[in-house]
Design a protein around this nucleic acid. Structure first.
Length: 281
DNA sequence: CGCCAGGGTCTCG
DNA sequence: CGAGACCATGGC
């Protein structure tokens, strides 16, 4: 068996692409974060992942070093936008996130920019999470803990109207009416429907959870960015949500979720490079 | 300062 | 089924 750490990765692209929100870069270029309750420090050397702290097997699995990036790249559509995103994001990987953590953070993501999803997630950790030895930030609180929170303390974390959804979902899971872990064996369409029974989980958030926590690499979350991109691919022709989902699935191929993530990150990177925050004169 | 953000849900036609 | 209103908050 070959060493999983021989697989290529673009660590910064992976951690900055809006799939996970609590990692932070250190002065030496390494990254610190948590996988569940395990403190981790990793860096990138020669496009390979280097473990500085944490269990290598857990890290290899979380960073999905087994995903066949060559095969995925070969399956990318041939249109200019997809190919440009592929070139720009070479080595970006879709993580295998813990089910609850991913579900909770994307419940809070609706109508929020990536930067604010991050700040809400860190506030929730600071307010409700367990301190972890060797980590600057606490672990994400379990649904059992959040189920005992009040809506107003969640609103204090900046959640706004999303507080009610997160609280309701935490309580529903704490009552044992649904087990996120046992949903893994469901087929994708069934799993999507199961996730959408949770308050605050519609089709877009469900697709994020499918892609980022359940290894459904063909799931395509359609947010405002991807919506605009699909529109451009269709020559400006809009459509219903169902039509665009069908189009994306057919057009983006068997690894449509990967293509989507590269398109999303590339589009956001271009925007940030093009409009830097200029001082007012 | 105004627009918009990795939307969901409910209502009404 | 599909379009519209409404929901809070903060980045840019």
């Amino acid at each position: 068996m070959t060493d999983p750490f021989s697989a290529p990765i673009d660590l910064a692209a992976t951690l900055r692409s809006g799939q996970v929100f609590h990692w932070h870069p250190n002065a030496d270029g390494s990254w610190s974060g948590l996988i569940g309750a395990m403190p981790v420090r990793v860096s990138e050397k020669d496009r390979r992942l280097v473990v500085e702290k944490g269990d290598p097997a857990t890290i290899a699995r979380h960073f999905a070093l087994d995903h066949p990036l060559d095969e995925i790249a070969a399956a990318f559509p041939s249109d200019p936008m997809s190919q440009a995103a592929l070139t720009a994001c070479q080595g970006m990987r879709i993580l295998r996130q813990p089910h609850w953590e991913c579900t909770a953070t994307f419940i809070t993501s609706s109508m929020k920019q990536v930067a604010h999803i991050r700040s809400m997630s860190l506030a929730i950790r600071a307010r409700f999470g367990l301190a972890v030895e060797g980590s600057e930030i606490p672990a994400y609180p379990s649904f059992e803990v959040l189920a005992t929170a009040s809506e107003s303390t969640l609103r204090d974390c900046g959640l706004g109207y999303r507080a009610e959804n997160l609280l309701k979902t935490a309580r529903l899971l704490a009552e044992g009416r649904l087990s996120l872990d046992s949903l893994s064996k469901q087929r994708t369409p069934t799993l999507r429907k199961s996730l959408m029974t949770l308050p605050g989980v519609g089709v877009k958030v469900a697709n994020c959870i499918l892609l980022f926590a359940y290894e459904r690499l063909d799931a395509v979350p359609i947010d405002t960015w991807i919506h605009r991109i699909l529109l451009a691919m269709r020559g400006g022709r809009d459509g219903t949500a169902a039509e665009l989902a069908r189009y994306a699935r057919r057009r983006l191929g068997p690894y449509a979720g990967y293509v989507q993530q590269y398109l999303f990150h590339h589009a956001r990177s271009l925007k940030r490079a093009k409009s830097p925050s200029l001082p007012k004169n």
